[in-house]
């Protein structure tokens, strides 16, 4: 796990409020806390800007439930649901009501 402050000492307990991105409702704003760096796909997504510390918006899901689209500052990325499960985030505010359905 690569986390914001301690890259090599992965420990979920210190981020007790962090949850998996996949479990968030649409329209949630979030901050990425930790990413499972053993997954090649997540390393690629990190290179594309999805790194611990970045803030984003869970915008949509594809009609069949995966992938999800995340709006990050400067770009919108598609992330498969199983990858999203390995991304820990903290929600920044309650989901807004005008979510795209």
């Amino acid at each position: 796990m690569t986390t914001i402050d301690t890259p090599l000492t992965a420990n979920f307990s210190i981020h007790s409020c962090a949850v998996s991105l996949a479990g968030m409702p649409l329209g949630t704003r979030f901050r990425v806390i930790a990413i499972d760096e053993t997954r090649e796909s997540l390393l690629r997504l990190m290179e594309m800007g999805l790194i611990p510390g970045v803030e984003g918006l869970l915008e949509r899901t594809a009609p069949l439930g995966t992938p999800l689209s995340l709006r990050l500052p400067g770009c919108t990325l598609a992330v498969r649901r199983d990858d999203a499960e390995c991304i820990r985030v903290i929600p920044l505010d309650p989901p807004t009501n005008n979510t795209p359905d």
């Binding site: 090599l8 760096e37 090649e40 390393l43 990190m46 290179e47 790194i51 611990p52």
Partner: peptide, 13 residues
């Protein structure tokens, strides 16, 4: 290598 990459990526950003 993956750890190095993860560290490099975060640090570079």
């Amino acid at each position: 290598p993956r750890q190095v990459r993860a560290i490099e990526t975060s640090a570079r950003y």
